[in-house]
Design a protein around this nucleic acid. Structure first.
Lengths: 196, 196
DNA sequence: GCGCAAATTTGCGCAGTGGGTAAAGTTGCC
DNA sequence: GGCAACTTTACCCACTGCGCAAATTTGCGC
């Protein structure tokens, strides 16, 4: 990776950090693109070269995490069935990131929850991701990617991960995140008949 | 309901219709708020009194449908467990609406899928709804609304309904929607282990 | 080192948006 | 009929996303 691309990645990260920090401090609506650009030492116009909207700048961390998740899933053992691969990848990613990342994660989730515009954008991104996941699951189960089952698994998985984070936050982070994550994935994987 | 409120509801509906029609005809981005307002015979400023954003005007149909769904769930037999109540309400709502509503539904879903901004907003609205559903499920299963299980059920249910509609569209509406819906809910309700 | 093509940043401008404010117009009710 | 409450509207302003072209920076062969 040349200097050009490295610098670009650096700037993107700086813009993201600035956007996230300012949003936490002042609230999403109170932060203008200009303020973010100033904090990251670029012009307002250049901000638009990096992100199509303020939301994207704040959520870029999620974006990155999501890309990693997809990578992890692709790297799971070839024979592993879809649901197991999804769950395995999520837990793998979590422990790889280390507990230090928890605080970042918590911050992003809190911000996304507080501001509907951010929540919406985040879910929109996830919906796009859902298709990629479905493709991976389909290939593992010998199904068509447009079939119902792979799409159900992908959607259920994303919902389980999202809920785990929310519940973890609601519990004031009193349990380790991976414990909640395991519980959430397990609950989603079980059938939903009431007799338990 | 007095004349005042009746007229207001009428206007809201007219604005929604105009927004949806213009979006289908021209594409979401090519339609300005001003054009919608003109088509609905109100001023641009009044548009803002009815909807906070263009997206909301286009998606108002979804909003209404969602409200009805919540009503249906509340009216399900008291003893019925959570998942069954959700599924029952969805199917009930579908057959009550009649097949004529299918075309409307298809149109809205197509529009929402074509335009990321609409998709995002729609999912954001659903996330808010998710909590209401979780409350209902929790009360039926004697759990706390903040607990994991009711939230999982609510999220899984919404995802299943959403996917059913998408798959139905992908299949060019060759099967009746309720058939796909049943299949989707069933698949989501089953456990996800690969042996089937 | 040097220069030049390619990529990146920036300033400027424009159409569009969301919302505050206050004036003008409606409606419900006594 | 009149008045209080509500709704619509015009006007305005800060902000956004993006096209365009000039200025700047970078990569690379020489």
């Amino acid at each position: 990776m040349g200097l050009r691309e490295r610098k670009k990645a650096e700037t993107r990260q700086a813009v993201h950090q600035a956007a996230l920090r300012l949003t936490v401090e002042l609230g999403f609506d109170a932060v203008t693109v200009e303020a973010i650009a100033d904090a990251a030492n670029i012009s307002r116009r250049t901000f638009s070269n990096y992100f199509a909207a303020k939301e994207d700048a704040v959520l870029y961390g999620e974006e990155q995490r999501i890309q990693e998740l997809v990578e992890h899933i692709r790297r799971r053992p070839a024979g592993e069935p879809g649901w197991a691969a999804l769950c395995g990848a999520a837990l793998e990613l979590y422990e790889e990131q280390g507990v230090a990342a928890d605080r970042e994660w918590a911050m992003r989730t809190r911000v996304a929850r507080r501001h509907p515009a951010l929540l919406a954008r985040q879910l929109g991104n996830q919906a796009l991701l859902e298709h990629e996941l479905a493709v991976e699951v389909a290939s593992r189960e010998g199904l068509d990617a447009d079939a119902l089952r792979p799409r159900i698994l992908a959607a259920a998985f994303l919902a389980a991960v999202r809920l785990a984070t929310l519940v973890w936050l609601d519990e004031r982070e009193s349990r380790p995140l991976d414990e909640v994550l395991r519980a959430s994935l397990a609950e989603m994987g079980e059938d939903f008949t009431p007799a338990r």
